[in-house]
Amino acid sequence: MYCNQPPEKPGNKKELLEKITNMARANSLWVTAYGTGCGSIELRPLGTSRFDMERFGIAMRPTPRQADVLIISGYLATKTLKRVIRVYEQIQDPKYIIALGSCTINGGMYFDSYNTLNVLDKYLPVDVYVMGCMPRPEAIIDGFSLLMQKIKDGRAHGWKHYKENLDYYRENQKKIITDWDLPDYNW
């Protein structure tokens, strides 16, 4: 049940199939409905008729089992990071992370907080950062279109990177989560 080896690279025969699949993946991004910070309030308007994310094929899924994208919406406390790791590792491959706001980029206004981590990239592989404090729904849609372009080009390899460099990520995660009680493999 566990994936103990890095995923194989697609050979030449699979190239075309992979390309078609990437098109499908880019046009059907399902988002885990999980909000970590203040930014999740900016995600709700995306579903309304004004911004309407469904026209890009983006939909909210209530469970990580069925999702593709995890949105880290704003500041991330160490306590939340534990839950986020669990959620992220339960998403089936391929999976992507969009990080919103300056808090995930360098800590933002919580840079000297006792409980908010500064650089998200050390703990989870981020595919697209959307800057702003908080980014408006237009900016989030822009981030989504960036991610779609990345997937179409086959450059959204955050999840592969995570599996290949699991030791690095685990070391960083365990450094700030002092009572580590997750299994070493969650997928």
């Binding site: 078609i20 699949t21 499908a24 993946r25 059907s28 309407d52 026209r55 890009f56 094929g57 593709d68």
Partner: peptide, 15 residues
């Protein structure tokens, strides 16, 4: 709303 493409379900299924 605008809504998704008509072919959205095929795309979802393949993905």
């Amino acid at each position: 709303r605008m809504g998704p493409r008509v072919t959205q379900n095929f795309i979802d299924l393949w993905k």
